[in-house]
Computed example of a mutant assay.
Amino acid sequence: MADRTFTLRSGRVVGLTGFGDSDAERLVIFCHPAPGSSVFDPDPDASAERRAHIVALDRPGYGSSDPWPSGHWPSIVQAADDIAEYVRSVVVAETVIGVTRPRTVGVVGWSAGGRVALALAARHPQLVDRVAIVGTPAPNEAVPWIDPQLQQVSDQLAAMAPEEAMGRLSAMLQPQADAVAAAAEPGEVPLDALGIGAVDASALALPGVRDRLGRMLIDAFRQGTGGVAGDILSYTARPWGFDLADVTAKTLVIAGQADALAGHAHAAWYQRSLPDARMEMVPGAGHLAIVPTWGRVLSHVAPARVTH
C-alpha cells in the first residue's frame, strides 16, 4: 500500500508513494492506470538513476485514498486538482523550512492516468512544465475504441444519480476484483484488466515486472471496485472537463506500435490536438510500453536542465 498519506482541505485522504531520489530537486508526478494504484514503479533501476523525486498518488477509491464523496460524480479534473493541492502544499512546507525546489513539476500518465496528467497541465499551467503520456486512449468520439455495447451502458449510467451509477458499475466490475483476490501470489494476478496481452511478453519477462503489476492490482482493489468504476465513469459517462489547447507544457506522447488498446491513431490524435507535442512509437511494444520507455519518459519530464 501507499507509504504515506496526505489530507486534502476537503478532509479526504490521499495515498502517496515515493520513488527515485527523495533528495532530488526535480519533482515528478506519476498518474497510474485504471485499475491501478500508486505502488507501481515501471522500472526501479531507471527511477533510481534519474535525479528526480517521483511521487504517485492513489486516485479516489484506490489503494489508500478515500472514495469519491457520495453524491458527487467522479471527475478527471477533480483528480487533477487533488494533485495540484498536494504539489502546492509541498512547495509551501519546504519553503517554511528553507528548502528550495523548482516551483514547476513534470507529470507522467500511463493509460487512463494520461488524462489526469493532461488535466493537471491544462488547469494548472503554472505548476507543470513537462508532460508525458504513455498508451492513453483518445476520446471515443475522436478515435472509436470502446465497444458500442459498453458505451451504451455508460450512456445509461450517465442518466442516473452518481450513487446509483457507481453502485451498478461497481457490481459489474466485481469479477475483476474476484479474479485478483483469487491469485495465490502477486505474480499470478491476471493482467487482462490492464489491456496487457501476448505482445507484452518481453516486457513482462523483465525482472520483477509481473510481480509489481500484480501488487498494484491487489492494492487497486483493496477497497473494492469503486476506484476503477469512478475512473471509467469520469471519461465515458461525463465530459472530460478540460481543453487540451490549454496544455502549454512540452508534451511527449508515447504508444506501443502493437498496442491494440491505444496505438498509433490515439497517439497521433493527441499530437495533433496538443499545442506542443512530440509523438514516439515503440516498435514491438503493446500497452505495457511504460516499462521499456520509463527511462526515456523520465529524461523528458526530468531533464538535466529544465527549460521553460
Rank of each mutant, 00 (worst) to 15 (best):
M1W: 05
A2C: 11
A2L: 09
T5N: 08
L8T: 13
V14W: 01
V14C: 12
G15N: 06
T17M: 05
G20P: 01
A24C: 08
E25T: 07
F30Y: 15
C31Q: 08
H32C: 09
P35H: 03
S37A: 15
S38N: 05
V39C: 15
V39L: 07
V39F: 03
D41T: 05
P44E: 01
A46R: 03
A48E: 08
E49R: 15
R51S: 14
A52T: 07
A52Q: 03
L57D: 03
D58I: 13
P60F: 06
G61S: 09
Y62R: 04
S64V: 02
D66N: 06
P67R: 08
W68K: 02
G71M: 10
H72E: 15
S75V: 05
S75L: 08
I76S: 10
D81G: 11
D82F: 09
S89Q: 13
V92R: 14
E94H: 10
R103P: 00
V105A: 11
G106M: 06
V108H: 05
G109Y: 00
G109R: 02
S111F: 07
R115F: 07
A117R: 00
D129F: 04
V131L: 06
I133C: 09
T136F: 01
E141D: 15
A142P: 04
D147N: 15
P148D: 09
P148N: 11
L150Y: 13
Q151R: 14
Q152C: 05
D155N: 12
D155P: 03
M160A: 12
A161K: 09
A161W: 03
P162S: 11
E163M: 06
G167S: 14
R168Y: 03
A171G: 07
M172Y: 09
L173H: 01
L173M: 11
P175T: 11
P175K: 11
P175G: 10
A177H: 01
D178R: 11
A184G: 07
P186I: 03
V189D: 02
A198D: 13
V199C: 08
D200H: 04
D200K: 01
A201Q: 14
A203Q: 00
A205F: 05
A205K: 04
G208Q: 09
D211E: 14
G214P: 07
I218A: 05
I232G: 04
T236W: 10
T236L: 14
L244D: 06
L244C: 12
V247P: 01
T248Q: 13
T248N: 08
V253L: 10
A255E: 03
A255G: 11
A260F: 06
A260D: 12
L261N: 12
G263M: 02
H264N: 07
A267H: 08
A267K: 04
Y270R: 07
Y270G: 06
Q271P: 04
P283Y: 01
G284D: 08
A285Y: 00
V291I: 14
V297C: 10
S299N: 14
A302R: 01
P303W: 00
